[in-house]
Design a protein around this nucleic acid. Structure first.
Lengths: 218, 218
DNA sequence: TTAGTTAGTATTAATTTGCTACTTGCTATA
DNA sequence: TATAGCAAGTAGCAAATTAATACTAACTAA
């Protein structure tokens, strides 16, 4: 069978293809909670409901490229590290037609993502309670949160939510919010000791003892 | 925008859709090595080369269903627990056309999968050395092995490679092959102690001290 | 000066891991 | 009928990690 033969046969068999989309789960930590970026849908289906930002994949771009394009089109950001989360393929997940969605997630510092009337962060805990999230996006968010909780323990992803220079109480707070539990200060510091570098600087303007400012090592 | 309007617009925009396939990475432990099931391709492209078993997804089946169908069509097996691994979307991964592949993996006891002239297990270590594996399937296998190494440490997947009744030396061997390293007998036993139940039975016919036979707890 | 508040450190107990060495029960053979 | 060989199974200790508590330090406000 040659390529020509194959393509002819494949084409003539004419089986329908699903559409493929990419959806983004952009997390941040703001205040006391883990939050996720959602857009209010302006079109059918689920008009007015909250959904993850996403795009249809083009025939000439990879999945990673489509994810970066979605990121840029929806937030204006470039070059954020996105990691593939899971691929969703239930039959009726989109009422229009068969759409398979490859989800990606990222942790982005609060300040870096511009919000708008359409694009807003919402607390994950709240979203997971709601029944009115578009498509299966609530489940995708739930799964993303689970993935993060796992990854936080054995990678450095938590650092991506903190600025260049940070204090240890700040960093610990991030860890606690991502993990959903309090940590012991002394133990926390032992564990991350080899990943941080102290600077000469201290915070100022606090009502209490200032804290030392650190940077990530390497 | 109504559904009709959307579909009309979507259709008339007429952008090309990629094809979507599902590929299976079926692992087993045989002898001293981790092995993976590969088929020898009989068609263009990569005729004669080894590839993972897979199928194109149909418009009316979910990804999980497609994976189970691939399993059945290629091995005759039903109801094996398959877990989604990763979705591969490089542009030129298939020379025929744009195909996105959702990969699934499973650990199956050696004996359960029937082999044939076309369908054979090969040691993963060997496959990873070879340059002549079809498509990007070598990379998929590599990624699957990595996933397994992680999962073995914090789940019970290793038990799925062992029969109902097994000895601890047997089980330890499985762990060692999956992890790619020797384990200390005493520590290994402490760690899995709460996952196993002793039976009254012992092995027989060995040249040395017989070992106790266990079952998985729960 | 002192109370309030958070930053940061010291210390100890409990658990897990890494590692060694032993005892046990079988077979083969001298 | 000893005993050597061999793998199964157990005991135990040192080192490292984790859980938890209690302390000291440095600032502000009153």
């Amino acid at each position: 069978m040659t390529e020509q033969e194959f393509l002819k046969e494949y084409d003539s068999s004419g089986f329908q293809k699903p559409s493929v989309a990419v959806d983004l789960v952009l997390f941040t930590v703001r205040g006391e909670s883990l939050q996720v970026l959602l857009t209010e849908r302006s079109q059918y289906p689920f008009i007015g409901k909250l959904a993850l930002p996403g795009v249809f994949i083009r025939i000439d771009e990879t999945l990673d490229e489509a994810a970066q394009r979605a990121l840029y089109q929806k937030t204006g950001l470039h070059d954020i590290y996105l990691e593939q989360l899971y691929t969703w393929g239930a039959l009726e997940r989109d009422p229009r037609m068969r759409i398979i969605s490859v989800s990606y997630y990222a942790l982005v510092p609060d300040s870096q993502i511009p919000e708008s009337e359409q694009n807003k962060f919402s607390p994950v805990a709240e979203i997971l309670q709601r029944e009115d999230i578009a498509f299966d996006h609530r489940e995708i968010i739930r799964y993303g949160q689970e993935r993060i909780r796992n990854k936080v323990s054995y990678t450095d992803i938590a650092f991506s939510l903190v600025p260049e220079e940070f204090t240890l109480p700040q960093l610990q707070k991030i860890y606690e919010i991502l993990l959903g539990q309090k940590l012991y200060k002394a133990n926390f510091r032992k564990k991350i000791a080899d990943k941080i570098q102290p600077t000469e600087k201290l915070t100022s303007g606090t009502k209490h003892r200032p804290s030392r400012i650190y940077r990530k090592k390497d």
